[in-house]
């Protein structure tokens, strides 16, 4: 399977991928006065709302950075919210990518997988810009993140692989069942609250009894792959520490396996996409 995968990747139209990504990015911000700034303004607005509601009204206390000593709910929040936003945007965009490019798929031959890939790549680019701004902010408040930058980039790529893997499956299935897009919106909302973005991972109770069942809530929540991603980002950006090797192993293996499954499923659907659309 690995060699077959390598063969598929060798002939891959990277320039087409690049051009489609550029089209997504340019199209998104053309004809708006602030242009690229929107990719920063949107997360800032979200951060402001969440900081006020959860940081002040609910009085969620952020853990003290270990060893950074940082203690600021807003920064703790952003370190989790930015990766989450990338996931949500990347999945929505890639899920709709084949359907949105119907006229292209039914009229021109090219490897269809560039469509979800370009959708994810475009959001990865704006995610990169957001993280860059956030990084500068962290440096200003005295969090020395520079040594961790290579690891953050590695983490971003792993997350992109994960998003693309899931996104490709959704994109193919969405051609058959357009419900996928609507269902995804609801599912993402639930997933958001199941991920420790707004709250620290030790906020939920250890166990909770529901209808006579004793649920190990915190262990269940820890199975969420995004919880592991968010924890790793926070380790690097907020706490300034190396995420545990076991975390890396789970994320590395899990993301690449997800991508491989996504490619496999997508290539199964690929020959018939033009007919079904």
């Amino acid at each position: 399977m690995a060699s077959a995968l390598a063969q598929r990747l060798r002939g891959y139209p990277t320039e087409l991928l690049y051009n489609l990504t550029l089209r997504e990015l340019r199209g998104k911000f053309k004809r708006s006065a602030l242009g690229w700034l929107w990719s920063i303004i949107n997360p800032i607005a979200n951060i402001a709302v969440y900081s006020v509601v959860f940081g002040i009204f609910f009085d969620v206390v952020a853990p003290v950075g270990d060893p950074s000593g940082l203690e600021a709910y807003a920064l703790f929040l952003v370190a989790g919210l930015l990766p989450w936003t990338f996931l949500a945007n990347g999945l929505s965009a890639s899920a709709g990518s084949v359907v949105a490019n119907e006229s292209l798929v039914t009229k021109v031959y090219f490897p269809r997988s560039v469509l979800p890939a370009a959708a994810v790549a475009a959001w990865l680019a704006s995610y990169g810009i957001e993280l860059l701004v956030f990084g500068v902010l962290l440096l200003v408040v005295g969090n020395m993140i520079l040594p961790w930058v290579p690891l953050v980039i590695a983490l971003m790529l792993l997350q992109a692989a994960f998003v693309l893997g899931v996104g490709m499956i959704l994109a193919a299935v969405n051609v058959y069942f357009r419900d996928v897009q609507h269902f995804l919106a609801i599912f993402l909302n639930m997933w958001f609250y199941a991920t420790p973005v707004l709250y620290p991972p030790d906020l939920p109770p250890e166990r909770y009894e529901l209808l006579g069942l004793d649920l190990p809530v915190r262990d269940l929540l820890a199975l969420n792959p995004m919880a592991i991603f968010v924890a790793a980002y926070r380790d690097l950006l907020y706490h300034l520490r190396f995420p545990e090797p076991s975390q890396w192993a789970v994320l590395g293996f899990g993301s690449l396996a997800t991508l491989a499954v996504g490619l496999l499923v997508f290539s199964r659907f690929e020959p018939r996409l033009a007919e079904v659309l």
Binding site: Y18, L104, V108
Partner: peptide, 29 residues
């Protein structure tokens, strides 16, 4: 294949940008 002219043209992009985009869709570097 000339099945549809200007397949993949993005209305907001300039003609120049679309030429590059369309070219790469049709398999040009």
């Amino acid at each position: 294949a000339l099945l549809e002219l200007g397949a993949g043209f993005h209305p907001e992009l300039s003609g120049r940008e679309n030429v590059y985009l369309n070219g790469s869709i049709l398999g040009l570097s």
